[in-house]
C-alpha cells in the first residue's frame, strides 16, 4: 500500500479556525483522537536481519498473512523504526489527577493496537506530492511481544492528539505531538510505562506548539499508474482549493526517514 501526503503547519491560535474550515469542507464533525505511539527500533545491523519469525508468519490467518509477509520482506532488507499505535481516551490520567489510588493499568500488550511501518518517501522528482510505501496492521493484540521477538527495542513513546476529517478519499489529520513530562528531558526511555500522566501535564513536542495538518490518500497498489494518478489528482485538487488558506506542501523526504541509522 502507498500513502500520498502533503503537509502544512498551523499555529495553535489558528486551531479552532482550521477545525471550522475543515468541518465545513468535509461536511462532518471532527473525529477527536488521542493515540499513544510507541517507537521500536530494529536491530542495528546492515546484514543478517532475520525479520519476523517464520513460525509466527505461518500461524497468521489467511487475510493477514500477505501483509505480515510483506512486512517481513521489508525488515529483512533494512532495519526500520516501527510504531505501535494505541487509542487512548482524554481522561486516561484522570485517576492520578484526582488523587485516586487505583490507577488504571494500561498494559499495551493486552490491548488491541496498530502496527505501522512506513518507508522513506520516494525520491519522485516529478510528483507534486510525497509518496511512500506503508504497511498498517490493525486491531492486533500482543504486538509488544511480537516486537521483542523480532529483536526490536523500545526507545520512546509519544502521545498524538489528532482531529481527523475525511473528504472522499482524502484524510485530513490535524495533529500535534505531546511528550510525557518525565521524559521531556531524557532522550531515551527504556520501559513502557503502564500508567499515563494526566493529559494536562503533557508537554508539547514542538516548542512553538504548532499543529501539523496532513492531507493523505492511500493507494492499494503503488505500481499502478492509474491508481497513483487518481490519488495525486485528489490531493492536488485539495491543495489548489486551499491555496491561500493552508500552505499544503511536500516535505523533504529525509525529515520522515524511518530507517535505523547505523
Amino acid at each position: 500500500m502507498h500513502e500520498l501526503f502533503l503537509t502544512s503547519h498551523i499555529a495553535n491560535d489558528d486551531l479552532s479556525r482550521t477545525v471550522r474550515i475543515l468541518q465545513g469542507y468535509c461536511g462532518m464533525k471532527p473525529v477527536s483522537l488521542i493515540e499513544r505511539r510507541l517507537m521500536w527500533e530494529g536491530p542495528r545491523a546492515r546484514t543478517n536481519l532475520k525479520g519476523i519469525d517464520p513460525g509466527f508468519l505461518m500461524r497468521q490467518p489467511p487475510q493477514l498473512a500477505p501483509v505480515w509477509r510483506g512486512l517481513h520482506e521489508q525488515l529483512v532488507r533494512q532495519s526500520y523504526i516501527l510504531t505501535l499505535i494505541y487509542d487512548v481516551t482524554r481522561d486516561f490520567g484522570q485517576a492520578e489527577a484526582n488523587g485516586n489510588e487505583e490507577k488504571p493499568v494500561l498494559d499495551c500488550d493486552q490491548l488491541p493496537g496498530t502496527l505501522r511501518w512506513s518507508d522513506l518517501p520516494d525520491p519522485g522528482v516529478n510528483r507534486p506530492v510525497n509518496t511512500r510505501p506503508i504497511i498498517s496492521i490493525e486491531e492486533q493484540r500482543g504486538l509488544c511481544t511480537i516486537m521483542q521477538s523480532m529483536g526490536h527495542r523500545f526507545i520512546k513513546e509519544i502521545i498524538q492528539e489528532c482531529y481527523r476529517f475525511i473528504n472522499n478519499n482524502v484524510v485530513f489529520e490535524l495533529s500535534r505531538y505531546l511528550q510525557l513530562p518525565d521524559h521531556a528531558g531524557n532522550k531515551q526511555q527504556r520501559k513502557i510505562s503502564t500508567h499515563l500522566p494526566p493529559f494536562q501535564s503533557l508537554v508539547a513536542f514542538d516548542l512553538e506548539n504548532k499543529w501539523i495538518l496532513t492531507a493523505s490518500v492511500r493507494v492499494a497498489n503503488g505500481n499502478d499508474p492509474d491508481q497513483m494518478q487518481q490519488g495525486i489528482g485528489e490531493l492536488t485538487t485539495v491543495k489548489t482549493e486551499f491555496e491561500g488558506c493552508f500552505d499544503l506542501h511536500m516535505v523533504d523526504r529525509h525529515t520522515v526517514d524511518t530507517r535505523v541509522k547505523i
Binding site: 475525511i166 478519499n169 492511500r218 493507494v219 492499494a220 497498489n221 492509474d226 487518481q230 490519488g231
Partner: peptide, 11 residues
Amino acid sequence: RRTQIPAPISA
C-alpha cells in the same frame, strides 16, 4: 460510511 477512513484507492 463517508466519515470512516476510506479503503485505499484500488482498481
